[in-house]
Amino acid sequence: MAHAWRSRKIEVVFGLAASLLAPAAGLAQDAGTAGYLFAAPPSSQANRVYSVNRQTGDISACQFERPDVAQVGLTRCFPAGEGAGPQPKGDYGLVSTQYGGETGVFRVNAQTGEMSICYVRDVPKSGGGSEPRILCTAPAK
């Protein structure tokens, strides 16, 4: 009897997980009508989601953080740096690679076939020190 209950519990958990993940899987397709697409890098160490404005190519990135002394976490978003701002008008999307160590995503323009890799890196500040910014390579095909 205990085995049957455990088996049913596992089915319920997997069913619930599938129902929660199904809308997220369709998010990138449905979000196109809203003007943005979202993607996460494949790295299991990256706690980050990128978004791209489908028309302008503007990239943003945010991640979850929970300071050791806080019970509630916060959403930390990074400012755009070199190459992450508006691009020539196009039809932009995001593609995540299968490389498990990758913490960035590719910004792709479906109209031109050009691609850039976008990622978050520390950039030196003019007064010293550094701050994380979103950087994107120059578009290429």
Rank of each mutant, 00 (worst) to 15 (best):
Met1Asn: 12
His3Arg: 15
Ala4Pro: 08
Ser7Ile: 07
Glu11Met: 12
Val12Tyr: 04
Val12Arg: 13
Ser19Thr: 06
Leu21His: 03
Ala24Tyr: 01
Gly26Trp: 01
Gly26Lys: 00
Ala28Asn: 04
Ala28Arg: 03
Gln29Asp: 11
Ala31His: 02
Ala31Phe: 01
Gly32His: 06
Ala34Gln: 08
Leu37Asp: 03
Phe38Val: 02
Ala40Gln: 05
Ser43Arg: 03
Ser43Cys: 03
Gln45Ala: 11
Gln45Asp: 13
Gln45Cys: 03
Ala46Met: 04
Asn47His: 10
Arg48Tyr: 05
Asn53Thr: 11
Arg54Asn: 03
Gln55Glu: 10
Gly57His: 02
Asp58Asn: 13
Ile59Ser: 01
Ile59Lys: 01
Ile59Asn: 05
Ile59Gly: 01
Ser60Glu: 11
Ser60Lys: 10
Cys62Thr: 05
Phe64Ser: 05
Phe64Gln: 04
Glu65Asp: 07
Pro67Ser: 05
Asp68Glu: 14
Val69Ile: 04
Ala70Trp: 05
Gln71Tyr: 11
Val72Asn: 07
Gly73Gln: 07
Thr75Leu: 09
Thr75His: 04
Phe78His: 09
Ala80Glu: 09
Gly81Asp: 08
Gly81Leu: 06
Gly83Arg: 15
Gln87Leu: 09
Asp91Phe: 08
Tyr92Ile: 10
Gly93Phe: 03
Leu94Tyr: 04
Val95Thr: 11
Gln98His: 09
Gln98Ser: 12
Thr103Asp: 14
Gly104Arg: 05
Val105Gln: 03
Val105Cys: 02
Asn109Cys: 02
Asn109Ser: 06
Ala110Leu: 06
Thr112Gly: 01
Gly113Val: 00
Gly113Ile: 00
Glu114Gly: 06
Glu114Trp: 08
Ser116Pro: 02
Tyr119Cys: 02
Val123Tyr: 03
Ser126Cys: 09
Gly127Pro: 06
Gly127Lys: 15
Gly129His: 04
Ser130Glu: 09
Arg133Trp: 07
Arg133Glu: 12
Ile134Trp: 01
Ile134Ala: 00
Leu135Arg: 11
Leu135Ile: 15
Leu135Asn: 05
Leu135Gly: 02
Lys141Ala: 12
